[in-house]
Amino acid sequence: MKSFFESHLWPLKNRLYRFAILWLKDRDKAQDAVQDTMYKGFINQEYLATISNPTGWMVKTLKHEALQQIREAGKWETMDDVGDLAMEVSPEVDFSRKTKMVFKFIEKLPERQKEIFFLREVEGLTHKEMATYLEINEGQVKVELHRARKKLKSFLENYGK
């Protein structure tokens, strides 16, 4: 029989990895952050089995790990809370030109919009799933997604001009 970790937390690894790429823009660092998050999930699986949103807990832990990675790399200036990941990190060189274009746009978004946009466009999550991931309400998700897409439209219209 599969443990809680194997059935509920381990399947999140690909999504968490891509989410870590959003913040760290580096595959190796993203992998390290996800590995550490998975280990923490494994250690705390008994507790996670009792809470209503273990996915949210994993995302929060991943965010914390990503912050730690950035902090260690010395690529940060000030940090007030775990939710603040809006710092400049240059993308790893081997990302394609198209992917860098996505990063360029995402960088311009406020933190919450960035996460919502990414979860929708890259992960294809529904409003409800995004609300669970980020531990916010669906209404907030809809508003932020609308704002992000509005900005995308204007970004694409002005891109290369």
Partner: peptide, 8 residues
């Protein structure tokens, strides 16, 4: 991800 191992 390429090298993430099951913590178990």
């Amino acid at each position: 991800p390429k090298g993430i191992h099951l913590p178990l």
